[in-house]
């Protein structure tokens, strides 16, 4: 947990997105009265090397999403970040197989830490 300079805390929380019916991991900024003042979604490309993350939501073109599905990457699937580049291209391990993914995919996949 990091503290901002005006008594603002940054923490992680899972929020329910009622309109689209899914849960998202967010960074939530709360003030000292614990009321939320700002939130951020965590995207796959923010994942650190070696971390294991769970897919929460994918916002991809249908064709790409289909391909990911048949490779076993769906909402709820755990993926491990094997290697990553600065701009967000990644090598991830999904169900035992390595895949290289471009930034255009990793920045459109919402994840939460496991």
């Amino acid at each position: 947990m990091e503290y901002g300079c005006f008594g603002v805390a940054k923490t992680a929380g899972i929020l329910y997105n009622a309109t689209d019916n899914y849960y998202q991991l967010h960074y939530i900024y709360v003030d000292k009265n614990s009321s939320m003042i700002r939130r951020e979604t965590m995207k796959l490309y923010e994942g650190q090397k070696g971390s294991t993350l769970k897919v929460v939501h994918m916002e991809l073109p249908l064709q790409t999403e289909r391909r990911l599905e048949v490779l076993g990457m769906l909402e709820g699937t755990k993926i491990t970040v094997v290697n990553r580049k600065k701009r967000g291209a990644m090598i991830v391990k999904i169900r035992g197989t390595r895949f290289a993914m471009g930034q255009s995919i990793t920045e459109r996949v919402e994840v939460e830490e496991v």
């Binding site: 895949f99 290289a100 993914m101 471009g102 930034q103």
Partner: peptide, 12 residues
Amino acid sequence: GDGNMLLIELPE
């Protein structure tokens, strides 16, 4: 303007 989607399997 839609980005390219790199997605390939890396064999061991």
